[in-house]
């Protein structure tokens, strides 16, 4: 089968630690795929390889028909891969609005001189950016906080700004690294609703990492289970739930 994203035997090590071990799986266009696995399983490393923050030691990746062994993060962004981070990676001294606007950088087509002297394409670019940013912020309930410096916001809102910054560019593939970490049940369900809507309305394919198995099995249409850098299971939520390896290694210890 061919998916929007395919990984073939991807491996990655850090000085002896095998973070990813000959990993292969495929993500179909339009689906919500969840990556689960214990701490240190290699989930974040996997996202980092997909959008070029890390470089795999072996294997290759196919995204949207383009095959590569390694990719520059900027190239990944320009191909339409968006990304949020497990640990805060916002532009902390900028406002919410500026963070979201920055997310649009790859859509800027005005030249440097047009930008600074406000000539030519700059006007349309500024207007267009602002309109898109405002729309994304109100979609995520951030409009009331648009002018706030992000480092002064509570953690949950910062997570949403991170999502807004990735979402605003209209990514084909959205990689979310624990978007619900530190949230209570109600907030997690709210975030699930948002992710579902992003998937439906924006048409973004989503790969997300989440530890809460209950939430994941509800939200995702496809689950990949990682353990020590290897794939333990891969399939629909119901199949994965019944997989004895998964129950033994992961679900069993959680429930």
């Amino acid at each position: 089968m061919t998916g929007l994203l395919e990984l073939h035997d991807v491996s990655l090590s850090f000085k002896g630690v095998r973070a990813l071990n000959a990993l292969s799986f495929s993500v179909a266009k339009g689906e919500i795929c969840a990556l689960i696995g214990p701490n240190g399983a290699g989930k974040s490393s996997l996202l980092n390889v997909i959008n070029g923050v890390y470089r795999a030691d072996a294997g290759d990746i196919v995204f949207d028909g383009l095959r590569f062994e390694a990719i520059h993060p900027q190239k990944a962004a320009h191909l339409g891969i968006g990304r949020t981070f497990q640990h805060n990676a916002l532009f902390r001294r900028l406002s919410v609005r500026e963070n979201v606007l920055a997310g649009l950088s790859r859509h800027g087509n005005a030249s440097f001189f047009e930008n600074i002297f406000r000539l030519g394409r700059d006007g349309a670019e500024r207007q267009g950016f602002l309109a898109r940013a405002e729309r994304t912020m109100s979609f995520l309930g951030l409009d009331r906080h648009a002018g706030r410096i992000v480092s002064t916001l509570p953690y949950g809102l910062q997570k949403r700004v991170d999502l807004a910054r990735a979402l605003v560019a209209g990514p084909k593939l959205l990689l979310l690294d624990e978007p619900m970490a530190g949230m209570n049940q109600e907030e997690k369900e709210e975030m699930s609703r948002v992710i579902r809507e992003v998937n439906r309305v924006f048409g973004s394919t989503v790969v997300l990492i989440e530890h809460d198995v209950g939430i994941v099995l509800n939200l995702a249409s496809h689950v990949v289970v990682l353990d020590y850098g290897r794939k333990l299971a891969d399939g629909a939520p119901d199949e994965v739930r019944k997989n004895p390896d998964v129950i033994a290694a992961y679900l069993g210890t959680v429930h």
Partner: peptide, 22 residues
Amino acid sequence: SRVGREWMAIRDMDVAASVIGI
């Protein structure tokens, strides 16, 4: 301008700046 915003993004978190395509 956009240039200034991109500078500040790089200043605050260069990996994230790169990941969003700056």
